[in-house]
Amino acid sequence: MAVFSLMLVVFSLTTGEFVVSGILPDVAGGLAVPLSAAGLLTTAYALGMIVGGPVVTLLTARVSRKPLIIGLVTTSVLANAASAVAPGYAVLLVSRVLAGLVVATFFAVAIATAATDAPPGKQGSAVARVALGMNLGIVLGAPLGTFVGQHLGWRATFWSVSAAAAVALLAVLRFVPDRPSATTGPVAGELRVFADRRVQLAIALTAVGNVGVLTVFTYLAPLLTEVGGFPAGAVPVLLLGYGAGAVAGNALGGRLADRTLLPSLAGLLAALAGVLALAWLSGGNPVATVVSTVLLGALAFAIVPGMQTRVITAAGAAPTLAVAVNAAGYQLAAAFAGWLGGRVLDAGGARPIYLVAALFTVAGLGIARYSLRRDRRASAPS
C-alpha cells in the first residue's frame, strides 16, 4: 500500500503535466491569449521540474522522507488549485512553475523509498510499480482531464488534478512509513556523487537513450497520419495501443532489471532501435504502423525502471539527489526532442523522424554497453 500510495501521487503529477496539451485551446480562449502563449504553460511546468529537481532536493536533503513527501504533495495540491482559480495568464504561468518545482524531487524520493524498502533483488520491480503511475497518467489521466475540461471548463481540469493529488496525499498519510533522510553530513557533500563516473554515465544514459523515443512520441500524430496513412480520428485509438504497450513494457522492464540490470537495458535499447528502424523502413504500411506503435510504447517504458535503478545503485549514499537530477535530465531530453523533431520535420517530412530516433537510441545503447564493460572490468579479479 505504501508503493501504491506513491504511485497515486505519480499519477496525479503526470496527469498535471500532460493534460495541459489537451486543454490549450480552452485556456487560450478563456484567458484571451494566443495559443502559442498558452503553450508556454507546458514549458513552465518543465522548467519548474528542471530547476526544482536539484535545487529543491538539495534544500530538503536533511528532511526525513515522510514529512518531505507530505510537503511536496501538499505543494502540488495548492499549486494546481491556484491554477484553477488564476485570475489571469501571469498567475497561471507562475502556478505551473510552482507545480513543476516539486515533481522531480518527489519522483526521486518515491523511487528511492520504493527501492530501499524492496526485498533484495527486487528494486527494479518496485521502481516499475511506482512508474506505473506515469503510464496511467499518460494513458488514463490526461484523456480524462481533457474530457473534463472540454465539458466543464479548463478550470475544472486543474481542480480535478488538485483533487487527485489530495486523495493521494491521504493515502500517503495513512500508508507510507517514515524514514530518516539519506543525508547525515553536510548537504554540499551530496554533490560529490556527481564526480562518480558511474553516476555520470547513468544520467547520460537516461538523457541520450530517451531522446529518440521522446521525439517520436512528440510527433506521433503526424507520423500516424502522414506516414502511416491513418485518418486523424484513428489517432486516439492508436495512442491507446501505445499506452497499453507502455503498461506491459513497464512491468516487463522492472522484472528484467531485477535479473540483469545493464545487460537487459542494453538488450531493450537494441530492440527499441530496431523497431524504430523498421518503422522507418516500413513507411506507410498500416499493419506495420500499428505493430510498431504498440512495440514502441512497450519498449519506451520498459527501459525506465532499469535506468532509474541504475542511477540508484550507482549513486550509493546520495540516491535521491542523483535521481532528481536524472529526472531533470529526462525533461531536458524531452525539450530537445521537441526541437529536434521539428527540425527534421521541416527538412524532410515526418518519416525521417523514425531514422533519427533510431540513431539516438543507438547512441544510448553505446553508453549502456560502455557502462557494462566498465562494471565488468571493475569486478574482474586482479
Rank of each mutant, 00 (worst) to 15 (best):
V51Q: 04
V51H: 07
G52T: 06
G53Q: 14
V55K: 13
V56H: 05
T57I: 01
T57E: 02
T60A: 06
T60G: 01
S64A: 11
P67Y: 02
P67G: 02
L68K: 12
I70Y: 03
I70W: 02
G71S: 10
G71K: 06
G71I: 05
L72C: 06
V73W: 03
T74V: 13
T75F: 04
T75V: 14
S76L: 08
S76Y: 13
S76E: 02
S76I: 11
V77A: 06
L78W: 02
L78I: 13
A79C: 05
A82C: 09
A84F: 04
A84N: 09
V85L: 09
A86K: 12
P87N: 11
P87R: 14
G88S: 10
G88M: 03
Y89K: 07
Y89N: 02
A90E: 10
L92Q: 12
L93E: 07
L93Y: 14
L93C: 04
V94P: 02
V94N: 00
S95I: 11
S95C: 10
S95Q: 05
R96H: 10
V97L: 15
V97K: 13
L98A: 14
L98D: 00
L98H: 09
L98W: 05
L101Q: 10
V102N: 07
A104S: 15
A104T: 11
A104G: 07
T105K: 06
T105L: 07
F106V: 13
F107Q: 08
F107W: 10
A108I: 08
A108E: 05
V109D: 08
V109I: 08
V109Q: 13
A110R: 05
A110L: 03
A110Q: 02
A112S: 15
A112G: 06
T113F: 14
T113D: 11
A114M: 10
A115S: 15
A115W: 06
T116A: 15
T116C: 05
D117P: 00
D117F: 00
P119M: 07
G121E: 10
K122H: 15
K122Q: 15
Q123E: 12
Q123P: 03
Q123D: 10
A126M: 06
A128C: 12
A128I: 11
A128L: 11
A128K: 15
A128M: 13
R129L: 06
V130A: 03
V130I: 09
V130Y: 04
V130G: 04
L132M: 13
L132N: 09
L132P: 00
G133Q: 11
L136D: 08
L136F: 09
L136H: 04
L136Y: 01
L140T: 09
A142H: 03
P143Q: 04
G145W: 08
V148R: 13
V148F: 07
G149C: 09
G149T: 11
Q150C: 00
Q150R: 14
Q150P: 00
Q150N: 12
H151C: 00
W154M: 01
W154S: 02
A156K: 02
T157S: 05
T157K: 08
T157E: 03
T157H: 08
S160A: 12
S160L: 15
S160Y: 13
S160T: 11
S160E: 01
V161Q: 03
S162F: 06
S162H: 09
S162A: 15
A163C: 03
A164W: 00
A164Q: 07
A164K: 03
A164V: 10
